[in-house]
């Protein structure tokens, strides 16, 4: 195994931890939406921005595009004026899709 392939395997091994970081940050945003307080969009934007960069670099282009899509929606202010319920439903669906893509990446399969 060459050194880059070894790095990729180590990256795959870290995906569960990365998913947890995203889930916690996203959970905090969803709780804020539920409690009608200002969500920390910057924190979520930062986490998905980093994940979009690293996952794409290691060859997981779908994961990267999925993360980038959420980052772009946050940066573009899409959720700022949207109803909280609609935003929460979107984020929930986004996380489900992320899980499907992560499972594919971890198991070396393409997500459905």
């Amino acid at each position: 195994m060459d050194s880059m392939e070894k790095l990729k395997q180590e990256y795959v091994a870290s995906l569960a931890q990365k998913r947890e970081t995203i889930r916690i940050t996203l959970g905090s945003v969803m709780r804020a939406l539920k409690n009608r307080v200002a969500p920390d969009w910057k924190a979520l934007e930062f986490v998905v921005h980093k994940f979009a960069g690293s996952s794409g670099t290691y060859g997981f282009r779908e994961l990267s595009a999925h993360a980038r899509d959420l980052e772009d929606r946050i940066t573009g202010g899409e959720f700022a004026s949207a109803p909280a319920k609609k935003t929460a439903a979107y984020l929930h669906a986004w996380l489900e899709r992320l899980d499907a893509l992560l499972e594919g990446a971890i198991n070396g399969k393409k997500a459905a």
């Binding site: 050194s3 880059m4 790095l7 990256y11 980093k50 690293s54 670099t57 290691y58």
Partner: peptide
């Protein structure tokens, strides 16, 4: 770069040269 995964990837590409 604050992302260690990116740093390692770049290092992996450039150090062998």
């Amino acid at each position: 770069d604050d992302d260690f995964d990116t740093l390692r990837y770049c290092e992996g590409l450039l150090a062998p040269q």
